[in-house]
Amino acid sequence: MTRQFLLDGQPVPFEDGQSILEAARQAGHYIPSLCWHKDFPAHGSCKLCIVKAAGRHVSACATPAREGWEVESNTPEMNGERRGLLQMLFVEGNHFCPSCEKSGNCELQALGYEYEMLSPRFRHFYPERPVDASHPDVLLDFNRCIFCELCVRASRDVDGKAVFALTGRGIDKHLVVNAESGRLADTDFSKDDLAAHICPVGVILHKGPGFAVPIGERDYDRESIRQKKLRDEEASS
């Protein structure tokens, strides 16, 4: 017998051990995410997938679905919280989209559009985060890192290299490169690594392509992140 929970009033079937997010996406419902990736265990850091389950706020990517639960996701309250989280992510780094090569293909930006984030609301931190252009093929612009650890996980668990790590705590947290010099050029990182292709924002950028695809003709210029993620899900199942 399949078990199910209710997502915004609609029945969603799930298998044992599946998270609320996975089950919802599989059933064609969109719950947003940034740090979640279907090939890795849940990370639970960005909180964009926040839902109210049985009256409590939980991360949908890290919470196993339960029979009979009533889950609220696409409500003004939850979407408002998501907007607040996005605003915090934006002011915490240096996000100048007009000069970012990732613009139009960036998940953080696309979520800003999806949840109609018009203002930064908070005071900008303007942190100092020097770029690393040492590697011949790949540029690291730490200004835009959201600490999702997707590159850390991909490099360690798939590429078998452990090129990246997070260090520091709280407001001092930052991404580092595992080399004595701290430079990407002094690691065995390659542009063909999974870690070179997994960053949801504009930190790990391949040198060369630049603006070959012009602004206005990119992924999220053509469709919303909601549409794209649901389409990707369908294609992979």
Partner: peptide
């Protein structure tokens, strides 16, 4: 009304902030 990226988050001129 804040009109445009620079009024909204400082934009290009704010890249001198560090």
């Amino acid at each position: 009304i804040a009109l445009g990226a620079c009024a909204v988050n400082g934009g290009l001129p704010a890249q001198r902030n560090h």
